[in-house]
């Protein structure tokens, strides 16, 4: 549904994207997980023709985005990182005005707008002006604005950044519902739990490159063990020594990590060594990123 080959982009001296290949299948929810500056948004913007690639090819639903941006954009739904709604217009007007850009007849636009408002539980806010709408509701509106043209591919650039946990859950639930309808969805995120919850497959990115691609399960299974003991301290060397009974630990910044198989584990020696923050948890995508880059996602 979205294919790319050798996609590259530099902004001056900054190589935002360095030779990326993509093959995103119809009906798939595909994630790009990485820290800020990894190049995720640049890839999204290339797909909706806001950024012109320096090199490479890029097709959406069989249409060459670089040669025919108009046709390609007609099949895309775009939810950008910023809530760039029309602040003077009402919730419903934001949808119908947007529908006009796609040449959707008025009657159909109004019907779809009402359906989408219902879908996102915004119906009672339909006549509210954007200035009077909370951030979370604006986000939900931007999300359905991207659906007004019944796209084949939906692009979600950090759909839940800045949302409170409740709003986040609500957006996730809606995204899953869209997936069930067979929509192809591309998501960028720097939340590993978001990637794990929503994505069928994902690429972990750093500094303009894709480090690894796979299902969340496969990526986690590629780690040395299923569980992790994680400690944070001012004196990581000491913590490493104190936890030597857990095996070879790995130190990244102020964090120390031991991959451990299941079964009983004694954390007492580490606690006694004065490490206040230590916990045992299942391995996750953040560990995959850490292993690959030596940094955690938040950096």
């Amino acid at each position: 549904m979205v294919t790319a080959c050798g996609l590259s982009k530099a902004f001056g001296d900054v190589h935002a994207v360095r030779g990326i290949d993509l093959d995103i299948r119809p009906g798939e929810v595909y994630g790009f997980l990485g820290p800020n500056g990894a190049g995720k948004s640049t890839i999204m913007k290339m797909i909706y023709a806001m950024v012109r690639p320096d090199a490479g090819t890029l097709d959406v639903a069989g249409i060459d985005v670089i040669a025919e941006p108009r046709r390609a954009k007609a099949r895309l739904g775009v939810v950008p990182q910023d809530n760039n709604l029309d602040p003077d217009l009402t919730v419903r007007q934001n949808l119908t005005v947007y529908a006009r850009y796609y040449g959707i007849p008025k009657k159909i636009a109004h019907r779809r707008a009402d359906e989408l408002l219902e879908f996102m539980q915004l119906t009672e806010k339909r006549d509210v002006v954007i200035y009077d709408l909370s951030g979370g509701m604006q986000r939900r509106l931007v999300l359905i604005r991207g659906l007004i043209n019944e796209p084949q591919v939906l692009i979600l650039d950090e759909p839940t950044t800045g949302l409170d946990p409740q709003a986040r859950q609500h957006v996730w639930q809606r995204i899953r519902s869209l997936k069930r309808r067979g929509l192809t969805i591309l998501i960028t995120t720097h939340y590993m739990d978001e990637a794990a919850h929503l994505c069928d497959r994902l690429s972990i990115m750093d500094r303009g490159r894709i480090l690894v691609t796979g299902t969340p399960r496969d990526l986690i299974d590629s780690l040395p063990a299923a569980e992790v003991v994680e400690a944070h301290t001012d004196n990581p060397e000491q913590a490493l020594r104190a936890g030597s009974h857990l095996g070879e630990g790995e130190q990244y910044g102020d964090g120390v990590y031991w991959f451990v198989a299941g079964g009983a584990i004694d954390l007492d020696p580490i606690v006694k060594a004065g490490v206040a923050q230590v916990a045992r948890r299942p391995a996750n995508l953040e560990d995959v990123f850490l292993q690959l880059t030596g940094r955690d996602l938040g950096e």
Partner: peptide
């Protein structure tokens, strides 16, 4: 301020 153009050119509008 409103970044309307970024929203508009993400559609078929050039």
């Amino acid at each position: 301020v409103q970044r309307s153009f970024e929203a508009i050119i993400a559609t078929p509008v050039s």
